[in-house]
Nucleic acid binder design. Structure first.
Length: 401
DNA sequence: TCTGGGGTCCTAGGACCC
DNA sequence: TCTGGGGTCCTAGGACCC
C-alpha cells in the first residue's frame, strides 16, 4: 500500500457572483459590492470587511456598509463563467465532482508523470482560472474530501492551502467545530451544550456519546471527521436528483386563484427545465412555509416518470387541495414545487437506423442516446438506449446535441 | 438576522409483500 | 389461527450546503 498522500483538491471560486461583477465592471473593483438588493446573494471581500454576509437582508447590509454598491444578478454571466471554469477543471484532471455552480472536488491521483503533483496541478489551475476567466479561485489540497473542503475555506481569499497527512491534526484540532463540512448551527449548538467547541474537543469524545446526542448517522459522521476519517471518493459524472422552484409570498396568503396561478407558474418552470435537461421524475413535492416560518411538505409518487406540465400540475393541485386547511389556518409565506425521484423507472428507446449510417453520425447518435439513457448500443441496425423512461421523448427526436 | 432560491442526504414509521 | 424475519416502497420531517 502506498503511503497516504494529499491528492484531493477542493476548488472554490471566491465570492463568485460578486467577483464576476467586479471582473466585468471596473468601477466595482476594490470596492464593497453585493449581488442582490433584497437579500444578499454574494458579498465581495471588501463588503465582508464591514460584516456583510450572504443571505443577509439588503437593508441590514446597507446599514453595516454605507458605501455599499449593489449589483443586480446576471445569471447568464454566472452560468457562462462557471462553464468556463469547469472546462478548466476537466482539462486539469479526469475526475471532477461538481458540488455547486462555483465549487468542485478534483481527484489528482496518479497524474505525476503527465500533469505533476497535486500541488502543482492546484497552482496551475488557480493561475489558469485567473488568466483565462478572470476570477480568483481558492484551492485546498488534502488526503480526504472533508479536509480539502476545510482547507480551501481556510485558504480564502485567493489562496492555496495544502494539508499534508502528517499535519492534519495540527491543522484541524484548533478549529471551531462549525468549520467541519456538515456541522451547521443546530449541531454546533448541541455540541456546545456538551462542552465541545473545537474539533480537538470533538475528537476527545467517544463515538457513543456523540451518537447519543446527535443521532446515529450524524454522531458517527462528526466523530469520523474529527478523526480525519472520510472514505468518500471523488465521484465524477453525478446527475441531478431533483429539480425544483419556489417563490416567496406576502404574509398571510391563503388558498385561492392567486395561489393556484403561482403554483401553475412553478410547475411550468420546473417541467420546462426537466424537458430541456431530458429528465423525468416520479415524485412531485409541494413545499410550504407558513407565517411563523415553520415548514411542511406534501408529496405524491406517480406510477410513471413524467416531465409533462399537465401531469405535474394535476399532482400539484391535488397536493394543494390536501394542504388547504393547513394553509388557511396558518397563512403561507412560501410555496415551492420539486420533482424528484428522477429517472426512477427503467425504459428503453429503440431507433431504426435505416440506410447504413456513416461512422461519425453513428457515434454522434450514440453519444446523444448515452447522455439521455445511460447506455447505448447498436444491434442489427437498431440503436438502443436503456435506462430511465422518458415517455415524452419520441424515437428520433432530439438526437443531435 | 426576521428570511431568497436552489439543492443534498438521512431517518422513522407504515403499508405491503414473501 | 397465530406467529416470524426480512425486504422494498412511500410519506413526512430534519439538518445541512451554496
Amino acid at each position: 500500500m502506498p503511503p497516504p498522500a494529499a491528492t484531493v483538491l477542493h476548488a472554490d471560486l471566491d465570492a463568485f457572483f460578486a467577483s464576476v461583477e467586479q471582473r466585468d465592471d471596473p468601477h466595482l473593483r476594490g470596492r464593497p459590492v453585493v449581488v442582490g438588493g433584497g437579500v444578499v446573494l454574494a458579498a465581495s471581500y471588501e463588503a465582508r470587511a464591514y460584516g456583510v454576509r450572504s443571505a443577509m437582508g439588503g437593508r441590514r447590509a446597507r446599514a453595516l456598509c454605507p458605501g455599499l454598491l449593489v449589483a443586480e444578478p446576471r445569471w447568464s454571466a454566472y452560468v457562462e463563467a462557471s462553464r468556463a471554469v469547469f472546462d478548466l477543471f476537466r482539462d486539469a484532471v479526469p475526475v471532477v465532482e461538481a458540488l455547486s455552480i462555483d465549487e468542485a472536488f478534483l481527484d489528482a491521483r496518479g497524474l505525476e508523470r503527465i500533469a505533476g503533483t497535486p500541488v502543482q496541478i492546484a497552482a496551475r489551475l488557480r493561475r489558469d482560472v485567473r488568466e483565462r476567466v478572470g476570477l480568483p479561485l481558492s484551492v485546498g489540497v488534502a488526503r480526504t474530501k472533508s479536509l480539502a473542503k476545510v482547507a480551501s475555506a481556510a485558504a480564502k481569499p485567493d489562496g492555496l492551502l495544502v494539508v499534508e497527512p502528517d499535519a492534519e491534526e495540527a491543522f484541524l484540532h484548533p478549529l471551531d467545530v462549525g468549520a467541519l463540512w456538515g456541522v451547521g448551527p443546530i449541531t454546533r449548538r448541541k455540541l456546545a451544550a456538551l462542552g465541545i467547541g473545537t474539533v480537538g474537543d470533538l475528537a476527545a469524545r467517544p463515538e457513543e456519546e456523540l451518537v447519543a446526542a446527535l443521532g446515529r448517522a450524524p454522531g458517527r459522521h462528526v466523530h469520523a471527521l474529527a478523526h480525519r476519517r472520510d472514505p468518500r471518493p471523488v465521484r465524477g459524472g453525478r446527475r441531478r436528483r431533483s429539480v425544483g422552484a419556489q417563490c416567496a409570498l406576502p404574509r398571510g396568503t391563503r388558498a385561492g386563484p392567486d395561489l393556484d396561478t403561482r403554483l401553475a407558474a412553478l410547475v411550468d418552470r420546473v417541467t420546462r427545465r426537466l424537458r430541456r435537461a431530458g429528465r423525468a421524475g416520479r415524485t412531485v413535492v409541494l413545499r410550504l412555509r407558513f407565517d411563523d416560518y415553520t415548514r411542511a411538505a406534501r408529496s405524491r409518487t406517480l406510477p410513471e416518470p413524467t416531465a409533462g406540465t399537465a401531469d405535474v400540475l394535476a399532482a400539484a393541485r391535488a397536493l394543494l387541495r390536501e394542504a388547504t386547511p393547513l394553509i388557511d389556518h396558518r397563512g403561507l409565506t412560501l410555496v415551492g414545487l420539486t420533482v424528484t425521484n428522477l429517472d426512477a423507472a427503467a425504459g428503453q428507446l429503440t431507433l431504426p437506423l435505416d440506410g447504413g449510417p456513416d461512422r461519425a453520425a453513428l457515434e454522434a447518435a450514440l453519444d446523444g442516446v448515452r447522455d439521455r439513457y445511460g447506455t447505448a448500443a447498436v444491434t442489427r441496425g437498431t440503436l438502443v438506449g436503456t435506462g430511465p423512461a422518458q415517455p415524452w421523448l419520441q424515437p428520433g427526436e432530439e438526437l443531435e446535441r
